[in-house]
Design a protein around this nucleic acid. Sequence first.
DNA 1: CTGCTCTACTTTGTATACAATACACCCTGC
DNA 2: GCAGGGTGTATTGTATACAAAGTAGAGCAG
Lengths: 224, 224
Amino acid sequence: MSKASERAYSQIRAMILSGALPAGAQLGEEALAERCGVSRTPIRDALRRLEGELLVKRSGTQRTFVADWSLDDVGDAFELRAMLEGHAARRAAERMTDPQIKRLREANRVIGAAVRASPPDVEGFLEGNREFHAIILQAAASPRLAALLGTLIEQPVIWRTAHHYGREALLRSFGEHDELLAAFARRDGPWAEAVMAAHIRRAYHAYADAHTGLAVIDRQLAHG
Amino acid sequence: MSKASERAYSQIRAMILSGALPAGAQLGEEALAERCGVSRTPIRDALRRLEGELLVKRSGTQRTFVADWSLDDVGDAFELRAMLEGHAARRAAERMTDPQIKRLREANRVIGAAVRASPPDVEGFLEGNREFHAIILQAAASPRLAALLGTLIEQPVIWRTAHHYGREALLRSFGEHDELLAAFARRDGPWAEAVMAAHIRRAYHAYADAHTGLAVIDRQLAHG
DNA sequence: CTGCTCTACTTTGTATACAATACACCCTGC
DNA sequence: GCAGGGTGTATTGTATACAAAGTAGAGCAG
């Protein structure tokens, strides 16, 4: 898995996460092989890994698709993420080093700048967010927890959410990070856990509201 | 993945779970292929899946081993399992149908019989336990939760634990299942969650105690 | 026109051959 | 005797050919 297989895995995942391969799209091994410039063998390896991460789904037999998430699925994922990442935050608060806190502050500074831009820089916001959460996960120092959360966090639907946010939602999210930073700074594990869980549940509600609204609009467009 | 690959996956997993392939053992694709009567291709597929479940580990490049768990790893896994399976119990309690409760009672009856046998039938106890927890996970009706828990539950170290239990520990575990059943019967989600989490944490403590004791004995044997 | 069936094609599963890589052992030189 | 390099071997990575299975589409019958 040194070269081609690893590269194929990254490429396919990037295509899914970026939306180049939309949810529900069929993944032909042959086509992917040609696209990545390798044979089907490393593609198969990559698809097995992505299947384990629930990023792709095998339709019984004979066909492979980009996983499609229902609203229930998304709700489940956010709830699990709230629980696990809350746990991660508690562990992180109990273990965090000063340099890590510094990196967290820097990541949050980037987020703040992105939020205050006109118009808000959603991509910058997302990038800062990933960094912020990645540092916390790293500080939690639990490989197993990281593995579980990885399959939840690295889902396109989880992050594309933010594109539907208004400025006030972005600002609120930013403020919650400040609260988290304060908890980390005083090594307050329980409070960090509570804030993190609430932070993620709030993100879900923002998503669900936006999604419902968009679904309504979609339906109106379809009928009118 | 219809036939050979699936079979190879099950076989290898069974070998790991049963201890026929001990932790740290090297897994040669060629040898496994011969042992399963298939070519290396389905073996590779199977190993990729098992790698995703953290049952096997790839040593950088060039070698594959049965995953070896430190005591910290086990502690992490139990803590995560307590959290997630507690969540599963709550969801299950809110959704459980009467037939499912009946199946739970039956599984617990099997466990009770195994515990009361002389000597206690540990294999029967484990079988009933797997069934008991599987029904709950199914009733929780969250594929994502099932996927996460699957990688935690299906670890040999988690279950072989019970071989170190005394009769009183087995009986206590059995009694906690009764408590869970009662919570399910009255659809008491929060209580089911609390009991389940405590149940699993207690199982870990029994394991850690036994492990520490065994480690001490091992050391004494090594020195004497 | 609709429904069914059969066929052809698409797609994945499996086997095998070959290449690359890392590890271990041995040989040589100091 | 030890250290360093080099070669041989074991093991995984990759490509390709072939087999099996299923789906879609076309053609035919009712």
